[in-house]
Write a protein that binds this DNA or RNA. Structure first.
Lengths: 194, 194
DNA sequence: TATTTCATGTAAGCCGTTACATGATTCT
DNA sequence: AGAATCATGTAACGGCTTACATGAAATA
């Protein structure tokens, strides 16, 4: 049982769905693809944590609607309160930041614009999710998924992160503007030391 | 050349150092370990992006002090302005968030405390880094590494992220406090829609 | 007409983690 | 006395990504 296996159980606890549905829900908040999900679903079934019912379809492979079993729920209940592992963040931005002091401002500005654009894109994406959710909840239309509360708080997190990322970019620009001679030995630490 | 290879070049552009030194600098901002670094350094040397000079040591393996070559600098200059890849974040917290609505508040509170504690730990860690940096810069003592500007902005990012994470946890608690009947269909979306 | 959506699966390869391996000195 | 620091390396394994494979219907 790896992280993603529990993630699938987590989503299945909300409602029974297919591997394809799970992929769509996951993709909003987690980098993965179908070739990682299908084998894990088969494993969950072998372990007795999930079961599926097949539905015939014309032109497409049979739909397999997975649902969580009682054993699966037991595993989920254990996992949800088990010690939280550290987040693993692999972001090229961090590695690029290491060497910015050897480049001139024009180069740094190119990088900053890319970073800011990425956060801006993220902000738009999550705002769209929020709007979609609002529409669905208000109209009480058939929900694409029932990820109401969980989805809501994760969308909020995405928005907060994007906004603070944009602020960070602007703060860096300000840092450069103030020290045109690039004398970074007199950095004002006090402002940030709570 | 994978992400981490460029990260090593990025750090080597600041100052020549050993694989062990690189590991210590990286560990503040990047999850990795020595067994990933040493083979990559050997590859960088083969490619002509880095070279090393060996230094005899008693009781320990010979120190290999790596430095970036001109070819390495060329590669670094290309990479720094090349399109920024998306960040890959693998955080169990996200997967756990999916299913919170099936649990009672007591269970969610256990999870929230773990998340908040993790952000608190991160905040303390980065504040310590900032203090260390301030001490080093003021005393002009021999710098452990010369990652002044890059380290500074990354420490700031770590602090901002930790602080907003803590605020997010408190916002979730507030959400629960306001709706003791767990009627989450009347969520106030307007407040967040800019 | 071409791409996206729906729908599931396998195979090859890369990347990273854990463990194995060694060993003196310094700190707790 | 035991753990951490300094210092480099290899081997096995697991997990994830990319590509391969199929194919109808709807959209652009």
């Amino acid at each position: 049982m790896n992280k993603l296996s529990y993630g699938l159980l987590s989503l299945l606890s909300i409602m029974p769905q297919t591997g394809y549905d799970l992929l769509l829900s996951l993709n909003r908040f987690w980098h993965t693809n179908h070739s990682a999900i299908y084998p894990l679903l088969a494993e969950l079934e072998e372990k007795g944590y999930a079961r599926y019912t097949s539905i015939d379809q014309q032109g497409k492979p049979d739909k397999k609607i997975y649902s969580i079993t009682e054993d699966g729920m037991t595993a989920l209940k254990k996992w949800i309160v088990s010690p939280l592992e550290d987040a693993v963040i692999k972001d090229e931005m961090i590695l690029k930041a290491f060497c910015i002091e050897i480049f001139d401002y024009a180069t740094v500005e190119i990088l900053l614009e890319q970073i800011e654009a990425r956060y801006q894109k993220q902000l738009e994406r999550y705002k769209k999710y929020l709007k979609d959710m609002q529409t669905n909840v208000n109209s009480k239309a058939e929900p694409i998924n029932n990820l109401i509360l969980g989805g809501y708080i994760l969308i909020q997190k995405g928005i907060i992160d994007a906004q603070s990322g944009i602020k960070w970019c602007r703060w860096i620009r300000n840092l450069y503007d103030k020290h045109e001679t690039f004398d970074f030995t007199i950095i004002d630490f006090e402002k940030i030391m709570d």
